[in-house]
């Protein structure tokens, strides 16, 4: 008698289902879970690292630098004298309140040193970014401690 594919399928299905699924040892799920829990704890210990300065922050910093350099290039290599601070001094002196104080009126404010535009801008930029950096680091340290 020739057995058709359908008959064969039915007969094999019955035979295969007679043999049940294999079962692991009783403590299997417990041992898997203890390993999984160990893994999960490891995951918690490793803090997620985020950059101190975000992508947007870097974009702003880079564009500020580019702007600063462009301004310097356009303005040319001229030197300025720090004696322009004298203008502020004379402004102080022109105010009657300061004029009445002999200490202010008698002091001669003159700056004999002259520095380049680049040096001055660099110095201001350094101070500016230093303040930003300190504030970002402080904020991040506070966040981590919380």
């Amino acid at each position: 008698m020739n057995t058709t594919n359908e008959d064969m399928d039915r007969l094999v299905r019955r035979a295969v289902k007679m043999s049940p699924l294999e079962k692991p040892d009783k403590g299997f799920s417990h041992s898997v879970m203890s390993k999984i829990e160990g893994l999960a704890e490891e995951k918690v210990i490793i803090p997620e690292r985020s950059p101190l300065i975000s992508q947007t922050g870097w974009m702003i910093i880079v564009s500020l630098i580019v702007i600063a350099f462009s301004v310097l290039l356009i303005s040319g290599p001229t030197k300025i004298s720090l004696s322009y601070f004298d203008n502020y001094v004379s402004l102080f002196n022109s105010i009657s309140l300061f004029n009445s104080v002999s200490l202010f009126s008698n002091i001669n404010y003159s700056f004999p040193i002259s520095v380049s535009n680049i040096f001055l801008t660099g110095l201001f930029a350094f101070v500016f970014f230093f303040i930003i950096e300190i504030s970002i680091i402080t904020r991040n340290i506070k966040k981590v401690n919380h």
């Binding site: 699924l21 294999e22 079962k23 692991p24 299997f28 799920s29 898997v32």
Partner: peptide, 8 residues
């Protein structure tokens, strides 16, 4: 749920 099948 899946241990028996995975083990088999």
């Amino acid at each position: 749920l899946f241990q028996d099948m995975v083990f088999t």
